[in-house]
């Protein structure tokens, strides 16, 4: 549990960070809260030669709200996200999900950017960002670009982030007022990754679902946007048959590994249960 040797850099601006990464080359990694990378380094599963620590980059911190547009700086901690009354009002699923990440100590250091950019399929925010159709603001040597969360995840710990690029912020269009939401996660204990988890957002109009999105956590190599599951709800009264259809559709794309959380069949079954419960809860919250 002792990492290999590495050099440590602490830039003060995003521009400095990006140019450091460009000059240090492929064996450099940014570190945000460190709760994914440092354990990997201690196990020597990650052996970066350079660590570029973003904690002094002030422009990456904070939550900005502009009408219904939410921008969360990458270095905003999960605890700060939980504490934001504005976020809780505009997009309460952010708080509900963040409260289920690890434990309070980790959330005090763990960041929004680190959680979404690392590409760990066990992390809770990536699936949620897909459900919210969030966009990631990326800054690299060639400038800035935006990429939808739904196009960001390619495989375990593999993302569309180019070498030398830094995820600077997450942009979310707040769901319509009166929307329903829920993040249902089953885990073995506090601090664990999900055995299965589901994020659900839906909007009702006169009792009929006009919009729904569902995403799954830790039941595949990447977070999974369950598009067919969302579609199964649209146009229905979100009655038992529709909920069942959505859960079935979600279950169909779940491909979890067998691990200490249980055999594959259990985790697939649990995907069904989490989606069912999340949809029912979201529906009960929608107006």
């Amino acid at each position: 549990m002792i990492p290999g040797s590495f050099d440590y850099h602490r830039p003060r601006t995003l521009e400095e960070a990006v140019s450091l990464l460009a000059s240090l080359g492929e064996e450099s990694r940014v570190v945000a809260g460190g709760h994914s990378l440092i354990p990997m380094m201690k196990l020597r599963m990650a052996l970066p030669e350079h660590l570029v620590d973003l904690q002094d980059v002030a422009e990456l911190k904070g939550i900005r709200i502009d009408g219904s547009q939410i921008t969360i700086g990458a270095m905003t901690t999960q605890a700060e996200m939980i504490a934001s009354a504005e976020l809780a009002r505009l997009c309460p699923i952010l708080r509900e999900t963040a409260l289920q990440i690890a434990d309070p100590q980790i959330r005090s250091l763990g960041t929004v950017g680190g959680n979404v950019a690392n590409g760990d399929p066990g992390n809770d925010l990536p699936g949620l960002m897909q459900a919210l159709d969030a966009r990631y603001l990326l800054r690299g040597p060639g400038g800035e670009r935006e990429l939808p969360a739904r196009a960001f995840y390619e495989g375990p710990f593999t993302t569309a982030l180019d070498p030398g690029e830094v995820l600077a912020a997450v942009r979310i269009a707040a769901p319509a007022a009166g929307h329903g939401w829920a993040y249902e996660k089953q885990k073995r204990k506090i601090g664990d990754y999900a055995t299965a988890a589901a994020a659900v957002l839906l909007e009702l109009e006169g009792g009929t679902c006009r919009k729904a999105s569902i995403a799954l956590t830790n039941v595949g190599d990447t977070p999974l946007l369950a598009e067919a599951a969302g579609r199964a709800l649209v146009g229905t009264a979100v009655d038992a048959a529709a909920v069942k259809a959505a859960a079935e559709a979600a279950k169909a794309i779940a491909a979890p590994a067998e691990d200490g959380r249980g055999p594959r069949a259990f985790r697939v079954h649990l995907t069904d249960v989490m989606v069912t419960r999340a949809v029912e809860k979201a529906r009960s919250r929608a107006s």
């Binding site: 434990d103 073995r188 204990k189 506090i190 601090g191 664990d192 691990d259 200490g260």
Partner: peptide, 28 residues
């Protein structure tokens, strides 16, 4: 309710870290 050190058929030990070995917190 959770603790187990198990071995797979190849002799690899599982449950050898606190990620998998169940150590309850105040919540559980």
């Amino acid at each position: 309710m959770g603790q187990e050190i198990s071995y797979d058929a190849d002799g690899n030990v599982h449950g050898g870290s606190l990620m998998d070995f169940f150590l309850p917190t105040a919540v559980e």
